[in-house]
């Protein structure tokens, strides 16, 4: 079994911080097309963004986003027997996610540009590193 080194641990922590920072964006984006309940949102997170988070993490964030006026919710009696709380974007939520998406697009493009030589494995002189 590969023993985790300090460098690996710090990378994992960094990745966890990145994922955590993107949660608002991903949760709001998951609700762009349709209304979903908590477990469905988690499935979207896992399938579309590879964001695997502790499941209980999502619900406090949903509560906060609702308090901020970005989401609205209602309890719906499901055929399964127990009710489910469905969420959908408010008008303010739609504006917010559009703004966030544009920011992310520009930010990711700048970052990708910066990382091209790193991914190509070359130093600042163009020599293989």
């Amino acid at each position: 079994m590969l023993k985790s080194t300090p460098k690996l641990e710090s990378t994992e922590k960094w990745e966890a911080q990145i994922r955590k920072g993107c949660l608002d964006l991903v949760i709001l984006a998951s609700l762009w097309k349709t209304r979903l309940y908590g477990l469905e949102i988690l499935r979207v997170l896992e399938q579309n963004s590879r964001l695997v988070v502790a499941e209980g993490t999502v619900y406090p964030i949903l509560s906060r986003l609702k308090e901020e006026g970005l989401l609205q919710s209602e309890w719906v009696e499901a055929e399964a027997g127990h009710p489910r709380k469905y969420y959908w974007l408010t008008a303010a939520g739609r504006l917010k996610i559009v703004s966030m998406a544009h920011f992310w697009k520009g930010f990711a493009a700048s970052l990708n540009q910066l990382l091209v030589p790193v991914l190509n494995g070359k130093d600042d002189k163009g020599e293989p590193s």
């Binding site: 502790a54 209980g56 993490t57 619900y59 406090p60 964030i61 509560s63 906060r64 308090e67 901020e68």
Partner: peptide
Amino acid sequence: KALGTPDEIARQYRMEMILRTS
């Protein structure tokens, strides 16, 4: 276990309520 411990969820909930913009 996948949901998280009551401590973790309560802590996360409080932190989110503190961090909300309003």
